[in-house]
Amino acid sequence: MTVNTPSGRGDTPPADADPLVPLASLPGVADAVDGMRVAVDRVYGHRVMRRRSAEITAEATLRGARGSAALAGADWALEEIRRRSDFSTDREALVTGAALRVSAEAGQLLDIWRASPLRVLARLHLVAAGGDRGSGGGAGGEVTAGTHGAVGRPRLVGERVDDVDGTGLPLPSVDEVVGRLDGLARLIVAGSAAPALVTAAVVHGELLALRPFVSHNGLIARAAERIVLIGGGLDPKSVAPAEVGHAELGAVAYREALAGYASGSGEGMSAWIAHCGKAVELGARESVAVCEALQRGAA
């Protein structure tokens, strides 16, 4: 999908200049928004959240990272991730380590996102690839001579993309990526009157369809979705990790819903937004379970 973005910056644009508002009126989207809000409100209304919200946020961050890594081919048990201290041993470990770093970093970038989303995306790729330690990052996170210069910037002509999420979508050209990324950034900076779920789903879908980096595009797209949900006020404490829900719904359903987004049809878009809404619901349900376990003294 190519979004016709407004050129203005700053205040939320009027509805007729806001390309996301019509998406909120697609069949099934309002129900998805309502269902998601009910699930998220249940987490925030839990008595444990009043006393131990920082613990719930930390646990949601960890579980979100695990879910995102699972969709990228590293489906490890949560206990294994807790136990590990070394994530440099093999490809799955590298992916899991990248997911943990991206998930932790995303929560620190909200203020920058509102003003410079492309800068945040570059930072997330740098962190995913381990570039914040002065290394280059290749496919799956390993350092290779051919990918050192590709860390922290969109891909160039001729650079290979490691599509570990198996999107199955045609890879857009570099010129298309540049144009659509710029449009997406302008849309984010301008703001939208559409529900946060709609914006988050579009950001997620657009980044995964574009695959702007040589690696880790799925991890980055899912982290960006979470940033939008936090910044949009839906989940300010980040306790409803959509990544958990995406993993629970499964890779096949994820790819099918993404194909609907990429088609640009109203039916495909509504199916993708509803899929993202269901993922947030499931993430919220996971955090309710964590709250109840803490309440029982079992976690």
Rank of each mutant, 00 (worst) to 15 (best):
V43N: 02
R296N: 14
V290N: 00
S192R: 07
L109V: 09
E256R: 08
D86T: 09
E105A: 13
L110A: 08
D182Q: 13
V252Y: 02
S88G: 11
L197S: 07
E159W: 14
E256Q: 06
A106C: 02
N217C: 13
L124D: 08
K278I: 12
S265C: 11
G73Q: 00
G152M: 09
L126E: 12
D175I: 06
H246R: 14
G8L: 13
I188N: 04
V290H: 03
A30G: 13
A70M: 03
S135R: 15
D86W: 14
D16H: 14
V102N: 12
P236G: 02
G232K: 01
P117G: 02
E225G: 08
G97S: 10
R296W: 10
G136W: 11
A224R: 03
G283Q: 00
L23H: 01
R9T: 12
A74E: 13
A185S: 09
A200G: 00
M49C: 06
S192H: 07
S238A: 14
L210P: 06
F213A: 15
V38T: 09
A194G: 00
V202S: 00
A242W: 05
D111N: 06
G250Q: 03
V280E: 04
R101D: 15
G268M: 02
E55A: 11
G130C: 07
G266Y: 00
E80H: 09
L181V: 00
L229N: 04
L126H: 10
N4R: 13
V189P: 12
